[in-house]
Design a binder for these strands. Sequence first.
DNA 1: TAAAACTCTGACCTTGCAACAGAGTTTAAT
DNA 2: ATTAAACTCTGTTGCAAGGTCAGAGTTTTA
Lengths: 285, 285
Amino acid sequence: MVQQDYIPIGTMAKLNGTTVVTLRHYDRLGLLKPQYVDEATGYRYYSIQQNARLDMIEYMKELGMSLKEITSILESGDITLIETMLAKKNEQIHSQIRELKLRHDAVERTIASIERYRKSPVTGTIALEYIDRRYIYSKPCYQNFYEGDISSFEKVLIDFRHGLIEDEVPQFHTYNIGTSIKRNDFSAGKLIAKDIFIFADHLLSSLGFEMKVVESGMYACIYTDSYDNEIEYAHRLLEFCHEHNYVMAGDYICEILTEFTVFDDTQRGMFLRLQVPLDFSSKLV
Amino acid sequence: MVQQDYIPIGTMAKLNGTTVVTLRHYDRLGLLKPQYVDEATGYRYYSIQQNARLDMIEYMKELGMSLKEITSILESGDITLIETMLAKKNEQIHSQIRELKLRHDAVERTIASIERYRKSPVTGTIALEYIDRRYIYSKPCYQNFYEGDISSFEKVLIDFRHGLIEDEVPQFHTYNIGTSIKRNDFSAGKLIAKDIFIFADHLLSSLGFEMKVVESGMYACIYTDSYDNEIEYAHRLLEFCHEHNYVMAGDYICEILTEFTVFDDTQRGMFLRLQVPLDFSSKLV
DNA sequence: TAAAACTCTGACCTTGCAACAGAGTTTAAT
DNA sequence: ATTAAACTCTGTTGCAAGGTCAGAGTTTTA
């Protein structure tokens, strides 16, 4: 008759949709001690009432609490503690959802970026393109990386990223990076780095980041798949503009469309779009 | 001069906003081997270009990939693989968000439940209450637990929960449980359990669960904080109805408002609202 | 030249279990 | 009453992504 209610561990596990290992685990943690343990054999026997506690544990797990948290709450036996705990949990869940949404956006951006890479023209192509308004979060370049080699650019990049980390820009890795040269410098053929920036969502500004606008308009663009070519290709772009007597409407921009360092340890695998905005307002005259 | 570019591990960590331990970890995993290792001292030295790879790793981590996944992708060097990976990630993120939302609802339900408990009348109170329409997901009771003790009810409950697990009802722990007695049985004073159910969101039905409606209306209610009292209090409720010549409009319901098994291992700490809907349509005559 | 700061390896810790091994126990069927 | 099947025990190892020591050696700075 005492036996009647004594449930062995396997049965208990099945009844509650959990596993034997889990129950032993809880026993070790002191979270749920079996009501009776046979001293001779060490067999664990549970009572049917202990389902309630297991139930509660299961439930709190569902709410995303750790076993440690659950233990402390169950030991304290304080309802108000549970309430504050739940309120905290709710906060946590909220921020988790926010984070996941940011992550989702990040993934979307990357997918879009890869797709764009696929559909980009081959290296060397020069094209006139209409580009929509963009928002950038920029910092000045204190060093002209056009004078050094790629490691010189790396240094600037590291500085920049450092700044982004300090500013706590979320998911900054997923935003495309760009650099600029002042219009006058560029049109004079002087490659002097001005700013480095990320092309970011406008919503970053709603998070308190001060962003600049890159106006929409027609751009002369040239594509290249290596950072080493930038200088040569930038000159080509400049020649192109001169040949056609195009008037520049703003700063030159080097936009890093994709940057996968998958295949090569030694150098960034980049795909760049070098671009300069054109001024066609004279056509109105 | 060779030294120039060789970055020791601590500096590398700082540059990238990570830790020394992490870098050593990546080294062991083969995810990012330092460019040069001093054979005599074992000191790791990185090149500035390796920031790119670390960058990429950091980035993929941000997308929620495991180091294993990252390793395999970086080793394969296949862009299409990255694309399919990203698509999968997006799916994952979606379902994670869905899950979190369910969890959030669950926490809210529990908070509401505790609050309700706080504001509930004391044991023994009889009240006439208007109760809104409710939706229940129910199963018949194959055993009349009113004939046994609490363990008899536990058995029914276990069966029921088992059914819910099988049906894959999400977060079912957070829905309040109720049981019913047929109107005729109850009004004749015969306590014979009919159904056991959860009071669930209507949205469960949009997930394909067939739910029943408990109509809104005036209810005669009595509160108790112990399961052991149910029978006695149910009779009190019945008497109350007889005294006032109330006509019952439907089945008797025992609603478990809160059920915290925090303080006591041996028995569920319950707070019940026993209720029966009343028919006041005669007043229209 | 000495102290401070850095780095090394190796081992163990975290969470919430899962998957063994090898031995003993209970239950069911014969 | 056996015997086989099913169950349970303890104890160890493993997972992910590192964190946290200890004790020894190395590099940089004062």
